[in-house]
Nucleic acid binder design. Sequence first.
DNA 1: GTCTATATCTCGATAGAC
DNA 2: GTCTATCGAGATATAGAC
Lengths: 212, 212
Amino acid sequence: MPPPDSRSDYSETERQIFDAALDVFAREGRRGARMQAIADAADINKAMLHYYFRDKATLYEEVFTYTACQFMASFDASLKEAPTFAETLRVFIDGYVDFVRSNEACMRLMVQENLAGGTLLGQQMRKATDSGDAPPTILVDTIADAVQAGEIRPVDPDHTVLSVISTCLYFFVAQPTVQIMHPPAEEDWEAFVEARKDHLFDLIYHGLAPRE
Amino acid sequence: MPPPDSRSDYSETERQIFDAALDVFAREGRRGARMQAIADAADINKAMLHYYFRDKATLYEEVFTYTACQFMASFDASLKEAPTFAETLRVFIDGYVDFVRSNEACMRLMVQENLAGGTLLGQQMRKATDSGDAPPTILVDTIADAVQAGEIRPVDPDHTVLSVISTCLYFFVAQPTVQIMHPPAEEDWEAFVEARKDHLFDLIYHGLAPRE
DNA sequence: GTCTATATCTCGATAGAC
DNA sequence: GTCTATCGAGATATAGAC
């Protein structure tokens, strides 16, 4: 069954507002965001925001719930079974980087929530877990199995997953800094992202592969 | 010579305000932060904020300049020459993780600025570079030299540095999420940080070490 | 230097015409 | 459903007593 995607039964206008809100909240934070800025981004009157979504808190909650679900689903979506661990890793890195690229606003919002203390995170995780969406222990299990099978060195699965996520995600967070320090990333960001996939697989694969 | 540390000639009161402002801006963002919240955190009257620092924009700029300088200096501070590349890497990871831990508010503020678009980043970088503080190309050079000397595999230095930074830094950004998904990190964060240093060195060292 | 009171403005939210 | 006008809370900033 499809996840309870809050956007699925949205009208065109609601979707415009939703996307604009996601974008503005992601940049300015839940408190920093202005309703006027959201209205402008949605190319709509400010009063309409309150017509479709009661108030700012409701709008934020709607947007954050969607974001949290996207993130919960992203792991399963990126992890496809493959004959070897190397292939599984390669596919996951490609898939996860693509997910973040296609959902930059979601990613930023998630980071914002973490920076602000993450009070909504726990309750959202619990709600999603209760309704069947398991937290992404699946990637951890994959690593643990590979260790067990001797396919990779005996590493800590939790830390390893965290390292993979960090490297796939953080350069999007710090995009402005990256582009200042590394001109090629400024000139052609897409190419930089593709190059980064190759680098990450190379680095992590060799970091995990057994040594005889 | 010491860097132009804006805090060096601060009075006790100014320092209280400065630290409180750094903290609040780091959590709520430049726009989301309230002057009242800063005053409360500094345990001081709201009017004092305007007496010592003209207005919110000035206060933010002061705080951000300091943060940017800290970050520029952190690389040189963490990178100590050691006999082997392995030792250099180990010392850098330990030093950089410790830097971030001791400057969590700075780190959060830096991330906030990036999320918001990073408009201040460029001009701040340029200002610091002009006044002699070179950008942290030093770590990149170290990696490039190690590749040249055959001490490590032929990796892209820029991407490698970005990967090291990501893994040392992101788990602090996502601390609330990490603590939800990984209970031990919740129970004893300090121990988790120490364990992470070991993991990161292990993973990255093996990721870079040559294979015969 | 410190604090209270207040002016000024921004922003979220609503009323009411169309 | 859409828009204009506006109210009222809350935030920045200042005036002025002490």
